[in-house]
Computed example of a mutant assay.
Amino acid sequence: MSSTALFIVHQTKPGKRDEVRAIWMRHMGPAIQENPGHLAYFYNFDNDNPDSICAFQVYESAQAAQDFLKHPNYQAYLSESRLLLEHDPKVMSLSPQWTKSV
């Protein structure tokens, strides 16, 4: 497999998770939906932490992942959400070994 996956954990400031979600929906949802480099994307609320958001995404390649970082919607999301986060997100880069399509 040549795909690349990322698992990202965002810790929002207390009570700001819904605000971050609204920003994500406005900018990221449309950009990801239209991006052929994204093979899968799961945006999740952490059931055990009311101020945590986890995202799991699979790209067709490492280059596709790098290219998306330049997307204007991603840049807008970063700009608008930055002050609502406790710190930079934790990002894990993964090499998928096996997947099941839905």
Rank of each mutant, 00 (worst) to 15 (best):
Q63M: 11
A64M: 07
L39A: 13
N47Q: 14
E86K: 09
I53H: 04
Y43Q: 09
N49Y: 04
N49R: 05
H71M: 04
L83Q: 12
P36G: 10
A62V: 10
A65D: 04
L85D: 03
D51P: 02
L78T: 03
A62Y: 13
D51T: 10
L39S: 08
N47R: 08
R82C: 03
D48S: 14
Q33H: 14
N35Q: 13
G37I: 06
H38G: 03
P50C: 10
Y43L: 08
D48A: 15
D67R: 11
S61F: 01
Y41A: 05
Q33T: 12
G37N: 11
L83T: 13
A55N: 11
P50E: 06
Q57R: 08
N44W: 07
Y74Q: 12
Y43P: 01
P50V: 07
E86V: 06
L83R: 11
Q57M: 08
S61A: 11
H71P: 09
Q63I: 05
V58Y: 02
E80V: 08
F56D: 02
V58T: 02
Y43F: 07
A65G: 00
P36V: 11
Y74C: 11
C54D: 10
L69P: 00
L69Y: 12
L78P: 06
H38T: 03
Y41I: 01
P72R: 14
D48V: 06
I53V: 04
Q57A: 12
K70W: 10
D51M: 03
K70S: 09
H38A: 15
I32N: 03
A55E: 11
F68I: 00
Y41E: 01
A65R: 07
F56V: 05
Y74G: 03
Y77M: 06
I53L: 10
D67G: 05
S52V: 09
L83M: 07
A62L: 09
E80R: 03
F45T: 04
A55V: 13
N47L: 13
F68P: 00
Q33P: 15
N44C: 14
S61N: 03
D46A: 05
Y74K: 04
G37D: 05
P72M: 07
A76V: 00
N49Q: 10
L84I: 10
D48Y: 15
A40I: 00
F42E: 08
R82W: 00
A65C: 06
I32W: 01
F68L: 05
S61P: 00
L85A: 08
D67C: 02
L84M: 15
G37K: 11
F42N: 08
N49T: 09
Q57H: 04
D67L: 09
L84P: 08
E34L: 08
Y77S: 06
Q57K: 03
E80N: 07
E60L: 01
N44V: 01
Q75G: 08
L39T: 04
E34T: 02
A76S: 13
E34Q: 12
A65M: 07
G37V: 09
L39I: 14
A62M: 10
Y43A: 15
R82T: 12
L83P: 15
Y77H: 08
A40L: 02
Y41V: 02
L85N: 05
S81T: 00
E80P: 02
D46E: 10
R82G: 03
A64F: 01
A64G: 06
